[in-house]
Design a protein around this nucleic acid. Structure first.
Length: 496
RNA sequence: GCGGGAAUAGCUCAGCUGGUAGAGCGCAACCUUGCCAAGGUUGAUGUCGCGGGUUCGAGUCCCGUUUCCCGCUCCA
């Protein structure tokens, strides 16, 4: 009876519908027609999200080598120059006007063979032979390509690229001269600080929380008297003006990250990378996520981001396919060195034991809270057949469940509601609980199943005699009898 | 950004060739019952996504737009 038998194509729609019906997630600004790629967390959703973040925070900062931080969303604009986001967080893109295929300009060259490239370049030289300035620029780029394919370098040049594009055929449909002009698109949200909206007042909504940690490295280190290796953890909102949002909470423009940056001696980077890689996967498993739907996706060396030496994604198998829920990166000394360079301030660490001074390497664990939320929600969702009826149940780990226990009087008479209310009042001191006396007892159980409540406590006729209640387990639907005095202790053990 | 589909009650949907809205479930109240979505009675909730147009009259036809889903594309 544990079959998940939902068609993948319906699954996201079903989850969206359940999420709304039960108050997990609503569309942002729904009464105004919604806002693309933005979602609100409802009463049950906010509890689940908070529980996920709380578990992450506990596992990260309740250890002696990690400190917490909550940095501002708005940061000095130079931060984003140092991080590379102003320059690199853009996608120059072109479309084929005929077949509508879209290409990233800076990698278009990868899908064209060398012979065609040579021909296009020689055609270009021919066209430019009267234009001394451009031909010099072309020759210079050809002679100094650095690590790049010179062809792609020329494509990325504003003037040369446009002319070169006219020499190329679309790799998809083969039509000539069919490309649109390249359009640059920075994914950072821009706003202005202070009353004047000019370029000197531009600030960005942070596209990642990591930079707030990097720039505070020495503040945290010295105030907490930490020695390397140690980490800084932060949970917070980040914003990316994505071209396409999709798949419910998976790609949104506003999202929440749970990031931890671990500062290490460069000699030990591999050890700590492997350590955190294992640790982070285990975290998802320990909160009940199906291990068969979790995997690593190691980034091949030639696909690494500009800051990374080694990188892996933890992926969850969503109904729409495998998707990243967390990234673990060896960021090397890239970030701290860049901030040294751009700020002019030293971010080196003096290692007393080694008697050496160095810029630490950083092992980053970067988890998407919103993505994790969706993965936990989807992973918990089961439809089961019980006595010929369909039971929808969210089998959250008790630590993550929005409501920990529901309390019911079996019937609304003989003093049962009074006892149930007493129990509710007592448990409410420590737990998020729910009281329900509406409808038949079976219906009340099923309502809690759909909310993911792990325990249902029922006051019945025997309670009146011996002050015991039944406690019903969500997953097995089995009941056991327990003394009212033992309820808090019982729940603490189950929820710890 | 491209292509396809969709949008009517909280949810799932019906609503014919245009004539000013329905069902099931859910929700609320009461009665009855009393351990896994029980029965009965009663009730609340819709500018038919939004904006135009055609028409005597538009949920229905046309145009635009927003949002969601699917497939591409994209995702330093």
């Amino acid at each position: 009876m544990n079959d998940k038998k939902n068609k993948p194509s319906d699954f996201v729609a079903n989850i969206v519908s359940l999420a709304k019906r039960r108050g997990f997630v609503f569309q942002s600004s729904e009464i105004y027609g919604g806002l693309n790629g933005c979602w609100d967390y409802g009463p049950l959703g906010v509890e689940l999200l908070r529980n996920i973040k709380e578990e992450w925070w506990r596992s990260m900062t309740y250890r002696e080598d990690v400190e917490g931080l909550d940095a501002a969303i708005l940061m000095h604009p130079r931060v984003w120059e140092a991080s590379g986001h102003v320059e690199n967080f853009t996608d120059p893109m072109i479309d084929c006007k005929i077949c509508k295929a879209r290409f990233r300009l800076d990698v278009l060259g990868d899908s064209i063979n060398d012979k065609k490239k040579e021909k296009a370049l020689s055609d270009l030289k021919n066209e430019l032979k009267d234009n001394q300035t451009l031909i010099e620029k072309l020759e210079y780029k050809l002679a100094n390509p650095g690590d790049e394919d010179p062809f792609n370098l020329i494509l990325e040049d504003n003037e040369l690229g446009r002319k070169l594009l006219t020499k190329l055929n679309c790799p998809q449909c083969g039509n000539a001269n069919s490309f649109t002009d390249a359009r640059k698109f920075n994914l950072m949200f821009k706003t202005f600080i202070g009353p004047v909206e000019d370029s000197s007042a531009v600030v960005y909504l942070r596209p990642e929380t990591a930079q707030g940690i990097f720039v505070n490295f020495l503040n945290v280190q010295s105030s907490s008297r930490q020695k390397l290796p140690f980490g800084i953890a932060q949970i917070g909102k980040a914003f990316r003006n994505e071209i396409n949002t999709k798949n419910f909470l998976f790609r949104t423009r506003e999202f929440e990250q749970m990031e931890m940056q671990f500062f290490v001696n460069p000699k030990n980077d591999k050890h700590w990378y492997d350590y955190w890689k294992a640790e982070r996967l285990q975290w998802y498993k320990s909160l009940g996520m199906n291990p068969n739907k979790l995997r690593y996706h190691d980034h091949p060396a030639n696909k690494l981001a500009h800051y990374a030496k080694e990188a892996t994604d933890i992926e969850y198998e969503f109904p729409f396919g495998w998707g990243e829920i967390e990234g673990i990166h060896n960021r090397t000394d890239f970030d701290l060195s860049r901030h040294e360079e751009f700020s002019g301030k030293s971010l080196k660490y003096f290692d007393d034991e080694q008697k050496e001074k160095y810029v630490p390497y950083i092992i980053e664990t970067s988890a998407g809270a919103s993505r994790g939320f969706m993965a936990f929600l989807i992973d918990a969702y089961y439809e089961e057949e019980v006595n010929g009826e369909l039971r929808s149940v969210l089998k959250f780990h008790p630590k993550l469940a929005p409501i920990k226990a529901a309390i019911f009087p079996l019937v609304n008479k003989d003093g049962m509601p009074e006892i149930a209310r007493e129990i509710e009042k007592d448990l409410r001191k420590n737990f998020k609980v729910f009281y329900d006396d509406k409808g038949a007892i079976g219906r009340r159980y099923r309502r809690q199943d759909e909310a993911g409540t792990p325990f249902c406590i029922t006051v019945d006729t025997q309670t009146l005699e011996d002050r015991t209640v039944t406690i019903r387990d969500r997953d097995s639907m089995a009941q056991e009898r327990i003394s009212i005095d033992k309820l808090t202790e019982y729940l603490i053990i189950k929820l710890l």
